[in-house]
Design a protein around this nucleic acid. Sequence first.
RNA 1: GAGCCGGUAGCUCAGCCUGGUAGAGCAGCGGGCUUUUAACCCGUAGGUCGUAGGUUCGAAUCCUACCCGGCUCACCA
Length: 499
Amino acid sequence: MPLDEMNELIRKRLAKLEELRSEGVEPYPARYRVEHAVGPLVAEYDPQSPEALEAAGVRVGIAGRMMSLREMGKTAFAHLQDSSGRIQIYVRLDDVGPEVFGRFRRFDIGDFVGVAGVLFKTKTGELTVQAETVTLLTKSLRPLPEKWHGLKDRETRYRQRYVDLVVNQDVRELFQLRSRLIQVVRNFLDARGFLEVETPMMQPLPGGAAARPFKTFHHALGIDLYLRIAPELYLKRLVVGGFEKVYEINRNFRNEGLSSEHNPEFTMLEFYQAYADYRDLMALVETMMVHVTRELIGETTVHHRGADLRLEPPFAIYTLGEALVKVGGLDAAVAVEEAAARAACAEREIPLKGGETLALLQGFLLDKVVEPLLVQPTFVVDFPRELSPLARSKDDEPDVVERFEFFLGGKEIANAYTELNDPLEQRARFEQQAARRAAGDEEAHPMDRDFLRALEYGMPPAAGCGIGIDRLVMVLTDSPSIRDVILFPHMRPEGGEEP
RNA sequence: GAGCCGGUAGCUCAGCCUGGUAGAGCAGCGGGCUUUUAACCCGUAGGUCGUAGGUUCGAAUCCUACCCGGCUCACCA
């Protein structure tokens, strides 16, 4: 038995389990008829007066995990928790009889219990189920963390999220909010005629972003495959195919460092709209952000790291150059001169290898200097073409692309651009990237001939946008680490564990 | 990858500086208590002090290496 730590507490519970079993009580019954969820019961009956409750004689049947226990000789109080809430139960020898009461005395905190009984209010006014019978539904063998201080150890909380969820209500609520966020976003896009699609997460060529991919091998085909770093090139193929509004919400995988803002797999929303440009998507993102915030927070102000984020349109818009100078407080020359940008990087102790272009230096400065300052909702537009191999240039300024990034709470939340749909131009961009790759830049975008073929058939003018769901949840829930918004964040495996 | 901080009972923590062989609360166990709610009262049990070495008569405590986690930095355009 893999109960590795056969400590005294677990042995005691195993002994109780065997006792109950020997008395004919099945400690792991297959099913139980649950009549009521706890939350709605509390909502409906807690406002009622004790007298009204008694007169009504409301019979209920509930089930849940026992989270506390106060035994008093011939009676006991406990709290039962189900996914909708928590309610007190009152078990009395005279009500349930000696046999059931004797069994109940061997129930433990953490056990799943079914209770049938009548609602009443205690002296202190707490809505309570006076049990007529109690049924063991699952015997718990491991003790839960302490009732008062709970589970605080971050490592245990992340590794054993199931315990974290049992014990910490705020954690349950956070992940419920995350789920609702995705639902709200789906509804938002569905209502505007977008089609949700699924594209490959295993790709022969990892494209659509610049990042190191995870590599795997398909035995039957005898080929290497890469876990996708972005769905972009497949979603655009669908626009070629005639789906004018598409989106996908799912995981991207990047084989890079872990930090409070990076998990190797993370959730992206990407959406594409034909006949729209990046300005149209800016308006859409602005509307979406306000809508999502209202739906989830109930107002348009979000408290995040001590600041009040006001999600009220119109959001600020800066060009990259303006952001560097006006927000970042950098010398105006960094907008146009490589030497000035280089000097600014050196001043901020941003490590350089030498030979960086103005565009690359500006990218560094945006990330390091400006991004943390973009706390209120802000769009930054006009990125150098060099940093955006899949984006369309501006007609009057070919070295700049029609692109925006959206920042909130000092984090990059969204990245969008008018898509490059000129197949000849796209081929030339890929060739530039290939040259960089040949020069040793492993993150230069790979040449994707099938994608070019698709563009050659013709992709209508379109714009696309990616939104980092994890980071958005971090902002909305004021979470300091991405691990707090991912149910099972990646960690180094524990040593000596079974498969 | 580097620096700093942490790892002691199931959980939350103290003890470490100033070495003498481990403590509290909760949870557990036994007893009492038929409206308690951090229930209460009496009693009781529970530990490879992250791992492995070293120094020492003696190590949770000092030293070294390693493991795991957190934070910061680097990396991540």
